[in-house]
Design a protein around this nucleic acid. Structure first.
Ligand SMILES: [Mn+2]
Ligand SMILES: [Mn+2]
Ligand SMILES: [Zn+2]
Ligand SMILES: [Zn+2]
Lengths: 139, 139
DNA sequence: TTGTAATTTTGTAACGATTTCAAAATTGAA
DNA sequence: TTCAATTTTGAAATCGTTACAAAATTACAA
């Protein structure tokens, strides 16, 4: 049995064909896709795939804790199978979303000392390295 | 002339009645409201107020830099007239959104050293102090 | 003040992402 | 093979948001 099937079973999810393909997509591409992107891409291989199935599956993945929601954009939800605490950088020029690491321990927070923290989301927006050079060389 | 009118004019926005009321609402309540909340509340005083006006006004405030968008929730946009860099904590029990301060300098970030940072959004979700006590005393 | 152009507000329709729901298809145990 | 449980599907509904044009208001020159 494939690793990904074991991972789904361990997470309490029956490894149906669609679920395996959607999780594989997330893990292989690491591109923080929207539902639209996943559906459009997988439709090539699974012509009957319903967008509802993509929605249902991602909802289940989030509930079972094997996928996290990325709300870096205003109106569409993005998904990430990397559930470790890490930050996301969105380039306002090329729109690519980059992962980055940050030290949660060194983060100095005031005012909410006695609160219980369950999730931390750090989003930074700006211009990525590639676009910086490209934009500079336009002149 | 009121302070808030001067503030709008200085920001390049003509201080119409609706704009003054919407900005006052944001500044007084500090509750990170949705469009729905602002519209519903102000409708008591301004029965003709259109939801489109609330949308238009907030869009303009964001463009002129006197309001920031808070994407801490999955499907609705929240707004904040406090444009200083600060974090937001959402209590998963009472759904209140708290402000908190964090030290941007102490934040240790890897992988994206040469990127240009324009905006930083830090969202934390969990259980607030009040709810912690309430939930504990249920037993 | 009056007339007129520019700006602002409004209400409706359209849009796009997401959810609901019930039927169809698939799976799995007996 | 049979039948119940689960999963997938597609259509309709919902929700937040945007587009758009008409109505109302404001600015200002005559
Ligand atoms: Mn990521
Ligand atoms: Mn705030
Ligand atoms: Zn870029
Ligand atoms: Zn709470």
């Amino acid at each position: 049995m494939k690793t990904i099937e074991k991972y789904l079973i361990n997470s309490g999810i029956k490894p149906s064909y669609q679920r395996i393909r959607i999780l594989s997509y997330l893990m292989d591409k690491k591109n923080h896709p929207t539902v639209e992107m996943i559906h459009k891409e997988l439709l090539h291989d699974i012509p009957t795939l319903s967008k509802t199935t993509v929605y249902n599956t991602l909802k289940q993945f989030v509930e079972k804790g094997i996928t996290q929601i990325i709300n870096i954009e205003d109106h569409k939800t993005r998904y990430d199978a990397d559930i470790s605490t890490h930050g996301h950088f969105k380039c306002l020029n090329c729109n690519k979303i980059y992962d980055f690491r940050f030290d949660n321990k060194s983060l100095e927070i005031s005012d909410i000392e006695d609160f219980d923290f369950l999730q931390t989301h750090l989003y930074i927006k700006g211009i990525c390295k590639k676009c910086k050079y490209l934009l500079n060389n336009k002149n």
